[in-house]
């Protein structure tokens, strides 16, 4: 039973990883670019959500919103502000990364430009948050408390369950967006080949920000869910939590959205089970070890096909 409980916990934790893994895989699949700022977006959203909920913006902000909003609705403002903040940050990244991706001198490390810029943004966002709120982990007053359901002896956290369902629903919606809509078709054509897409009349410069907006929204939702589920946030959760989603992305295969879901859940399960069997300290070894193995043996991930990002960035 204890093992079953761990499996349930793992799948719930996987829900957070799924969202971030989908954000990673979307950017790499569409734009062929490993966006290392994604962990920072996750962190910014969680911190903004925390700040709205627990007075991080100071007295004035609280009294302003306290007078307008009915009690208990503060979290709506928190969610909105977190979504807006992450999306704006993401658009800022777009301005300085994808546009400079074009190879100008035919040089191998030239492709590293967006990668380096995104690492730079990771540093910027992390230190801005540290400047404002310091490095200590903060605890969040959860709007939903520790609501749990008891199903046949298993303890299921309601926020966790909501987050898992929500993340799968969002990815399903994203899948429909990509397959059915005009924007989705344009995005897929860019994924195939940006130059051809341009020739076929796709306004590449206009359509690329869509990827960044979706990335920002996904990260924001993941960050909010993380904050609600674990009720502790800090400036380092990005690099400590969200980077693990990279493993989920690779497991599912780069650029494969449904693969990222499975990969994210596997990573969540692996983390919960490794904690259960071997203790919390060793968690990183099985996850990153598995990632290393997959990269070396079967770099296309568990489901094969695409070879996106191979040989270039």
């Amino acid at each position: 039973m204890l093992l079953m409980q761990q499996i349930v916990n793992g799948i719930m934790l996987g829900g957070v990883y799924v969202m971030v893994a989908v954000a990673f895989t979307l950017t790499i699949g569409m734009l062929n670019f490993l966006n290392f700022t994604i962990p920072a977006l996750f962190m910014v959203a969680a911190m903004v959500f925390w700040a709205t909920m627990s007075g991080g913006f100071g007295e004035g902000f609280d009294s302003l919103f306290g007078s307008v909003l009915p009690v208990g609705m503060q979290w709506v403002v928190g969610v909105l502000l977190a979504l807006i903040a992450a999306t704006l940050c993401s658009l800022l990244i777009e301005r300085f990364t994808y546009r400079y991706m074009k190879t100008r001198y035919g040089d191998a490390t030239e492709h590293a430009i967006p990668l380096v810029s995104s690492l730079g943004f990771l540093i910027i966002f992390e230190h801005i948050v540290i400047m404002i709120w310091g490095t200590d982990p903060m605890s969040l007053n959860s709007p939903f408390g520790a609501a749990t359901w008891r199903v046949g002896g298993l303890l299921i956290g309601v926020p966790q369950l909501i987050s898992l369902v929500l993340s799968i629903a969002i990815v399903a919606a994203l899948h429909l967006l990509l397959k059915r809509t005009k924007t989705g078709r344009a995005l897929r054509s860019i994924a195939e080949n940006p130059d051809t897409a341009l020739l076929l009349g796709v306004d590449v410069q206009r359509i690329v920000p869509v990827v960044y907006v979706v990335t920002g929204l996904l990260c924001a939702i993941a960050g909010i869910l993380f904050a609600i589920n674990y009720r502790t946030v800090g400036p380092y959760i990005g690099e400590q939590v969200a980077t693990i989603a990279i493993a989920g992305m690779v497991l599912g295969g780069l650029g494969n959205i449904w693969g990222a879901i499975v990969g994210g859940l596997i990573v969540g399960l692996l983390e919960a089970l490794a904690t259960y069997w071997f203790g919390a300290d060793i968690v990183k070894v099985p996850i990153w070890g598995l990632l290393l193995l997959v990269l070396v043996i079967k770099p296309t991930g568990l489901f094969g096909q695409s070879a996106i990002g191979k040989g270039k960035f």
């Binding site: 996850i287 990002g309 960035f313």
Partner: peptide, 16 residues
């Protein structure tokens, strides 16, 4: 591994 895969593989190595 190449390109972005190599970045990830070396990153994973350091974490392991």
């Amino acid at each position: 591994t190449r390109g972005v895969y190599m970045v990830l593989a070396t990153f994973a190595f350091a974490e392991v």
